[in-house]
């Protein structure tokens, strides 16, 4: 039961990531791409948590948390660059 649900969830997350990738490629503007990348890292967190359940291991939690922190910092840095044209003022 659980393993079936996990596989279905894997499939759905992969499809979601493909949708995001399509938006990254398609654009049309930079904010769209950043938004798509932002969504991608959030989906990746979900994927890693899911993998942790699949492997029945708690070690993946740290990876997920790190991606959450780094992804946010990355998004903010890139948006800041868009707004000011300069990250370090």
């Amino acid at each position: 039961m659980l393993s079936l649900a996990i596989e279905a969830a894997f499939a759905m997350m992969s499809l979601a990531l493909l949708f995001n990738l399509w938006r990254v490629v398609r654009g049309p503007d930079l904010p769209d791409r950043i938004l798509a990348l932002d969504t991608m890292y959030i989906n990746t967190i979900a994927l890693i948590v899911l993998y942790g359940v699949h492997e029945q291991s708690g070690f993946y939690f740290e990876a997920a948390l790190l991606i959450a922190v780094m992804g946010f910092v990355g998004t903010v840095a890139v948006v800041k660059y868009l707004l000011r044209g300069d990250i370090v003022e």
Partner: peptide, 19 residues
């Protein structure tokens, strides 16, 4: 657990579809 995992995946998928 299966229910929550599937609900989570469904929302992520819908959000990405919206994108």
């Amino acid at each position: 657990v299966s229910l929550f995992l599937l609900i989570g995946a469904a929302f992520a998928l819908i959000g990405s579809w919206g994108l």
